[in-house]
Design a binder for these strands. Structure first.
Length: 323
DNA sequence: CCCTACGACCGCCAAG
DNA sequence: GTCTTGGCGGTCGTAG
């Protein structure tokens, strides 16, 4: 994206929506910023029925543009959605499909994922939504690959984000795609947010339970593994720590976190590896061992599968453009 | 390329 | 009747 080009961002609004959801993209895309390299966004809010739109926040907003405002948008955002059963208008569905087909970014924040799903954009793609509705999304749209961990998920220009606050992480991610890591980090710093929060929404799900029940062996076992990623963790060792049989551990883990233990462990290790790549000068092999990934070869393979770039390339990009 | 060993994963069913 | 657990066994992916 060149600096002179205006990037048109269109966000969908509806009656009774939460004002917070709309203000997240507005915060990121809706104002000029002094940051060097920050793209010039042009922010539009549109609705099926323009006019005065009551929100659930006790005040109304005035929306002037119709769905047609999205016809040439570079980024199309559905910041929220009335509910899993709400049906998108044919025009909105067409806009979503067309936007994706012409290469525009499409994002569904929080329940907005349901609108994207209705448009068929989540078919065969990784996606997420508010944790309380993740099961619903998965069962209503079996073709969508619903991930229950992670704050947001992006594939092929289709981005969905988890709970309410993750929308901000998600919008910053979109900026990162357009303007690079450095600009995204500056932006994040400007609006007071760690440059890239990670850890998955599972932690929000589990924390209250963990605090209430101090003797929850299962939670302790998982926390222990997360703290000692450099060490090997097998299902047997985890089961022993959780005081149950292996099969019970895998079953409980899958139910609580939505992914298998192995996949979760690898994910945690890759996050740690990326963190070390960014914040230390250690060699790749050293980092691989620190993260329990065994060897540099394994780290390279998994890293590129997960982040679509090599460890050294990631480090170079992060350094090269860092502010 | 195949083969083997091993661990992870998960469907299934019986028992509590 | 239901929910969870223990346990079996088959399949799959990976390392060597």
């Amino acid at each position: 994206m060149t600096r002179e080009m205006r990037i048109k961002v269109a966000a969908y609004a509806f009656e009774g929506m939460s004002p917070f959801h709309l203000s997240v993209p507005a915060l990121v895309f809706g104002q000029e910023r002094e940051l060097p390299g920050f793209p010039r966004y042009e922010f539009h809010v549109f609705s099926d029925r323009p006019g005065k739109l009551p929100t659930n926040g006790g005040f109304a907003i005035s929306v002037e543009e119709t769905v047609d405002a999205a016809v040439d948008a570079d980024i199309l955002i559905v910041p929220s959605w009335p509910g899993p059963d709400a049906e998108a208008s044919p025009r909105l569905l067409r806009m979503l499909r067309d936007a994706h087909a012409r290469g525009a970014e499409v994002a569904g924040l929080c329940l907005g994922a349901f609108a994207l799903a209705q448009a068929g954009l989540l078919d065969g793609r990784r996606a997420t939504t508010h944790w309380a509705y993740a099961d619903r999304l998965a069962s209503d749209y079996p073709a969508a690959l619903v991930a229950k961990d992670g704050l947001y998920v992006e594939q092929d220009g289709v981005t969905t984000s988890a709970g309410v606050v993750a929308a901000l992480d998600c919008c910053i991610h979109i900026v990162r795609r357009h303007a690079g890591v450095a600009v995204a980090r500056q932006l994040a710093r400007h609006i007071v947010l760690p440059p890239h929060r990670q850890g998955g929404q599972s932690q929000y799900l589990e924390q209250p339970v963990d605090r209430i029940d101090e003797r929850d062996h299962f939670a302790k076992a998982v926390e222990g593994a997360a703290r000692t990623l450099d060490q090997p963790h097998t299902l047997d060792s985890m089961a022993a720590a959780a005081r149950c049989i292996r099969r019970t551990f895998t079953r409980r883990f899958k139910r609580k976190y939505g992914v298998s233990f192995g996949d979760w462990l690898t994910e945690q290790r890759l996050y740690k590896a990326r963190e070390l790549l960014e914040s230390s000068e250690r060699g790749i092999d050293d980092i691989a061992h620190q993260c329990g990934l065994g060897s540099a070869a394994t780290l390279r393979r998994l890293f590129s599968e997960r982040f679509r770039t090599s460890p050294s390339q990631h480090r170079r990009e992060f350094r090269g453009t860092a502010a």
